[in-house]
Each structure stands twice: as structure tokens, then as C-alpha cells.
Design a protein around this nucleic acid. Sequence first.
DNA 1: TTGTAGGCGTTATCAC
DNA 2: GTGATAACGCCTACAA
Lengths: 376, 376
Amino acid sequence: MIRPTMEDVALRAGVSRALVSLVMRGSPKVSELRRSAVLKAAEELGYSPHAMARSLASRTSTVLGVMVSDLHNAFFAEVVDGIDEVARDQGFDVIINTGGRSPARERRALESLLSFRPAGLILLSPVVPATAISKAAEQLPVVLVARSSRVSTVDTVNDDGEVGARLAVDHLVSLGHQRIAHLDGGEGTQAGPRRRGYVAAMESHGLVPQVVSSEYTDAAGARAIRSLISDRVLPTAILSCNDFNAVGAISALEDAGLRVPGDVSVVGYDNTSLAALRHVSLTTIDQPRAEFGRLAAGALLQRVREERTEPVRHLLTPSLVVRNTTAPPATSRRSSGSPFLSTAGGDSAESGSRTADFEAKSPERRSRDQEHGGPR
Amino acid sequence: MIRPTMEDVALRAGVSRALVSLVMRGSPKVSELRRSAVLKAAEELGYSPHAMARSLASRTSTVLGVMVSDLHNAFFAEVVDGIDEVARDQGFDVIINTGGRSPARERRALESLLSFRPAGLILLSPVVPATAISKAAEQLPVVLVARSSRVSTVDTVNDDGEVGARLAVDHLVSLGHQRIAHLDGGEGTQAGPRRRGYVAAMESHGLVPQVVSSEYTDAAGARAIRSLISDRVLPTAILSCNDFNAVGAISALEDAGLRVPGDVSVVGYDNTSLAALRHVSLTTIDQPRAEFGRLAAGALLQRVREERTEPVRHLLTPSLVVRNTTAPPATSRRSSGSPFLSTAGGDSAESGSRTADFEAKSPERRSRDQEHGGPR
DNA sequence: TTGTAGGCGTTATCAC
DNA sequence: GTGATAACGCCTACAA
């Protein structure tokens, strides 16, 4: 249980401590002979440099701290991938920490991260108060992902939720839908822009917005649909606030004997791995998550290197991923027509059942399937 | 961008560095007057102790390193929750690192973690060679989760995959199934025990095992089903190696016009949040994930405190979660009977459609729904 | 190319 | 209670 130090390595390799230090830092001014001797000794001893001592002595850090508000959400995993990629590339190590969506825990996580004196901090969708963030930003560069800030020392990376919602509405309208409801994300992150984008897009098409209060869970999506059905105001298309909500909505629709997309089209938001599952095959809005991570890490490293002092506000454009939960609205009353729908006439057969559409899936999906199968 | 030190705090509070140190460590032998003065100065300066310097000087660490092989998998997030809970409770900080399922990256992640000289290490389903693990174990306590080891200095926490598979088989048999196939996880973690448990359970029931080569992805599950169908050897029930695979299997079955569970029952493994989604509502085997984390952290801290030197091998018992993808087999030929099934006679209507079963869901599901809706 | 002195922020061990 | 002083493991000069 003893961790070897430079001294041990130096002794074993028959050189001085200083030389070991040079080798460890990859200095070119070391003879090949000694270098390999040192490396060999280090390997045999299982030695690796003591990051803390190193950073203490050099007054620099090669560590990037990342606070993930919710590890359960695969969204963040992909952002971390992007961060990791850039960081590794530039010789930085990443340490992660989670706040469990609780402000108190998150605060503690932040403290903990700060106590390592990392070169910089990336906060993924933090829920701590803005003051805690700007306080941290006084000590080191901070980048926020999926949360905005007005602090000039803090950089931000976000998706343009208004554009995303508009993409979804445009898609549905182009399919012929007119009655499109939005299941709203309430207080959730990014719910605001998505709602605003939806309303604006509807109005620009001369359509009447129908915002239904909901939440970012599948249970909430199902509840919202049930209330629409019982109120007899079910539209022909649904734009959910996120994928979870959309999946819940689909379940409730199917429970009610309605077909998706035959009777009702559904669009999600986020393009989580869930949406890509063939069993779900959800039309949704994709956010360039890995790109979020790359941009965040890039921005942070610029600050770390003091290459920039002006704040940068990345606003990434989401994109539409069409899968099998959207189709033109039923244009005529079906033989097994639902009493909930007000669209008149036509045969819904032309819109196809979901399984019939199945083979039309995009190649993109297959790759995502692979990607998320995971080791379990 | 300047981080205050103890010196700064001492100066501002008008005391010595040593006293600040005492206050920071919560020593009782400091007058209330000075204590509050120090705390106030620290607060004003935004000072927090330098973890690395502290650990360097004290030759101890309050940091637990956690290497997560795959952040995308929510399975690990719940294990981390358990770890976090125990660690926080006992005054330890957790830093996380990810290996991205690549041995090379994982190795680097391990190195990086080690460079912080944490008090101990928890490896979640690592894919690095055993030698790398035992090497690390020479330097600090190491606990493995979801991976076994014969090294006596390493503790392990696993689920009993044999028991889990048996639970699934028993459930299916009790419903009346006789022809039950296992979609195998191949090289994947834990695939071995699950397969063995399946085979043993089948044989103990006097049934013939049918192991189908597959993988831990939904695409693989679908492929396996399609091959079973084209070979005309589709059984009445499927035990998948994990939930992803099961969902893929269900899709392929539905694509082929078969109903789940009307025509074929499907059981997953892991009880991921995916399984709990009402749209999926998958009967599956649950592993006590948070408990994994708690036990792992507990075992690690015992080693850290040198309370134990004998290895501990936790083998947790999984449990069956019955949802809506399992039902008795069709006992008679249906009017719309499938040509793939060999079971004779009966009307499958009695087993009910999935949506009809829907309301019978367990309360457990609802809580999981909430839990995983997340902030997106 | 190699070795030596100092210092990084903190803790621990002493005297006061 | 409080304040000096020597580590801790390493890096950055600087000298040899």
C-alpha cells in the first residue's frame, strides 16, 4: 500500500530526482539511455507522478473539473464525451462530479471540485444560484452548458430551443397538420425557449397555439394526453417538450386505441438514445451534444491560456430527425375512426402503421443503436 | 483569478496561519472569537482549503476515485448514487472519471485517477486487463463492481446473474411456457452467469435450453429474433441478456406481426429506466444498483481505515419485476395464428394485449418514471 | 546533461 | 490556546 515517489524511482534507476522529474515531464534534454532507465524503474515500481504535488509546485493545473447535474441523463454523457475528447487532445485531465439535481449537493460538488484547484470548470446544466457561479468564476474560468448567464467572465454553450421547436412545427405543418399542441416542460431547463419557438412558429403559420402544461417525464406526457382526450380537444399532432414526455404521450395515445402516427403524430425533443430505439423510433429534435462538449472545452481552454477575455455565447442550431412517429394527418374518417379526432374524411391507411414504416428508418439510427447498447 | 491561501486569510483575520488551519479542520481548541473571525475572513475572500496541499501535508486523502466504464449507461449512474451517499456520509469526496468502454482510454483514466492519490478506487465494470487492476491494488484499496477478480486485495460487488436468469425462467415456466430461448450477451459483462443460470434453470425444469448468440444492443436483439423467425424455431418466450436487447427483440416480433406478450413473452435484464417506461413496460430482472454502490463504498472505506484485510465478495440477489411483456403462452391456434409458432390450439385473446394489461402495472414503475424524467 | 536550493499550501510537532 | 518550524512530493530556477 506504499506509493512510490520520485526519490524511489531515482534510487532504483541510479539517477537524481531532478532527472526523473525531467523524464516525467518529457524533457528533450535527457539522454536516451537514462530516459529508458528511468521509465523502466518507474514502470517496475508502478510509479506515476503525483498530480497534486506537481500542480502545487508548478502553480499550474492540467485538470478540468466537470460538474454534471444529473448522471442519469445520457444527454450529459455525450457532452462529457465531447469535453473529454478535446481535453485529452490538449493534455488535460478531466474529473467529474455530480450534483444529483439538488442545489445543496451541487453546491458541495462545486466546492469539492474547486478544492482541487483545477485549471477551469465546466458546469453542465447547474441548478445552483447564479451567485455561486459568479463566485466560482472569480477564481477560475467557468463555462456553462445548457444554462445561460449574463456574467461576462462566464462563457456559455446552449442550443437554440426556439429554432428547434420551429423545426418541429414546420415539419408537422409541411405534413399537413394544422392542429398541433405543445406539451410544455414547465419549469424545466430550456422549456421556455421551446415554448416560445412553438408559439411563434404556429403564429407565423397562421395557426392557433395550444400549450398544454406538462413536465419532462413520460408519466407527465401520458397525463397530458389523457386530459386532452377527456376534454375532447386532442389535436392531430403533438410536440412534446422532450423525448421522455413524447414516449409517455405515445403510450397514452395507444392506450386510447389511437395509432401513432396514423391518428396522431408525435415529435420529441433531444434525440436521446431512447428516441433511436427501433421500438420507439421517435421523430425528434437533435442537439449536437458532443459538439456542446467540444465547444465548452475549447472555450474553457482559451480562457485557461488567457487567449481571450471577452465572453463567448455559443448558441447551437438543433436539427430535425425524422423517424416513424410523424405522418400526414388522416384526411378522411376511418372505418375504425376515433371519436376524438376532428379532422374529416379520407383513409388513414396511406399514412401507414408504425411498423410498416419501419424499414424507412435513417441510417443514422442504426449507428446510434450500436452506440448505446452498452456493456450491460 | 487569484485563489486566496491560508496566509491571506490569516492576515485578514489578524491571526497566524496555524490557527487558520485549526479552524479549517474544525479543531475544538480555538476560541469562539477567533474562530468566527477566521471564518468571516475566509468567506469574504472566497477561500476554501486546498485539497491537494492538504492531502500532501497530511499524507492522507479524503477522496474516493470512481472509474465509470460507460457514462451513457444509466445503470452506473445509480451505482454512483449509492457510492456518493456513503462517501458523503463519511466525509469523503468522490471524483469520477470515464473510460468510454475503451481499454486504452480506461487505462488513461485509471492513471489519471491514481495521480490524485485518492484514498481508494472503485472501478465500475472496468475493461482493462486484470494485471492493471492488481497493479493499482498494490498502491491503494480497490473495489470492483460488476466484474469479478481473484486478487485477494481486491473486493468485489456483483449481482448473481445465475439467480437472476433462474428467476426469469421460473417466472416463464410458471406461466406455462416450455419453449424459452435465451438471447445471449456474448462477451459482455455478466453474460456468462446469466447464460449458465438460464441453462441450469431450463434443465432443472426438464426443458431444452435454446441459446441464441446475440449482444447487448437493441439491434442485436432484433437480428436474433429475425433469424429465429426465418429459421422457424421461434419459441413462445424469450429471455434477453439485457433490456436493450429485449426491446430490440420486441420490435422485431411486432414487425413480424406477432404480439407481445400475446404471442411471445419477453423478459429483459437490468430493469433500466427504459424498461420502466410505460411504452415499453418490460418484465425484467432488477439489480439493486444503489446497493451495489453503497456496498462498494462501504467495503472500500473499511480497507481505507484498515479495518479489514480479507477480501469480501458481495454477490447480490436480483429480483423479478413483472410488467406487461409476459403472459401465458397461447394455448390454442388463433384465428390470426402465426405460422411461426408451434404451440397448438387456444385463443391468445385470453393473454390480453399489452395495452389492455397496461393498468395492471406495479406502483414501482411510476416512481421510476419520475426518477428518470430528468431536467431535460 | 546533471545536481542543488528554494518554494508551492497545508498539516503536524513542538515550544510558548 | 497560539505561534514557529519541519516535512509532504514535486517543479523551477540556477549552478556545475
